[in-house]
Design a protein around this nucleic acid. Structure first.
Length: 223
DNA sequence: CCCTGATTCGC
DNA sequence: GCGAATCAGG
């Protein structure tokens, strides 16, 4: 691969935007992370927080008489670039829960079991044997203005669940109006079609995705 | 180990 | 100019 103007522009844009060299290399394809870094420097792109550079100011030319470090005399391999398709576990996993963070609060007494939401319908049981400090029940909280009396009346409760309704949790366990979606489940799935779409987001390898037409390159990457 | 960017230096 | 090899920190 050669550095066409187009590719250089992309490199510049992404580098400026803060993408890592690895990400840029993947995005561009056909180049290594090192190639990207090398090119970025040759282009005079401003260096970004480097782990190594953090502790400079010392040594400088502290090359008293150390080994001039000769690279392997052997010719370097041409890097076949097998274009292997890899999906990290992160990327291929069903999507994360709508929300899972539990605010800290003082622990009430007499509570022996706590549940922590870790995903749609998923819970991590925390028993007495667990070393981790018990996570107190979520105090009442609202992400949106409370709907005064949007009661659980006609909402799908835990007892209403069966394999024909969508079990996508709405709200958070413990909250007064916590319920489940309850729409007709996508046959074979625990959720309705809409929530399946949220839960199972197949992620193609970055290089196989359609390049995001407008900058900035698909926005913030989740990590 | 993984990741990161910086640098060197043969090509 | 290019980028693999290497370094070095997190």
């Amino acid at each position: 691969m050669s550095w066409t103007e187009e590719r250089i522009d992309r490199l510049k844009a992404m580098w400026t935007k803060g993408a890592t060299a690895s990400q840029i290399a993947e995005e561009l394809g056909g180049v290594s992370r090192n190639a990207v870094i090398g090119k970025a420097h040759r282009l005079g792109l401003e260096s970004r927080p480097s782990p190594v550079k953090a502790g400079e100011e010392k040594e400088k030319k502290a090359k008293a008489a150390p080994a001039p470090r000769a690279p392997k005399p052997v010719a370097a391999k041409p890097a076949p670039q097998p274009v292997e398709s890899r999906l990290s576990a992160e990327e291929s996993r069903p999507a994360a829960a709508p929300a899972a963070a539990q605010p800290k609060a003082s622990a009430p007494e007499g509570v022996t079991l706590q549940y922590r939401s870790v995903g749609p319908g998923g819970f991590i049981r925390q028993g007495p044997g667990d070393t981790q400090a018990p996570i107190p029940p979520a105090p009442p909280r609202r992400l949106v203005p409370a709907k005064p009396s949007a009661d659980v009346a006609d909402k799908t409760s835990l007892l209403d669940l069966n394999d024909r309704v969508c079990r996508w949790p709405m709200g958070h366990p413990g909250e007064p109006d916590f319920h489940f979606c309850g729409d007709a489940a996508n046959p074979g799935y625990p959720y309705c079609v809409a929530h399946c779409g949220v839960a199972y987001q197949a992620q193609l390898p970055r290089r196989d995705r359609r390049p995001p037409p407008p900058l900035p390159y698909g926005g913030p990457r989740v990590r």
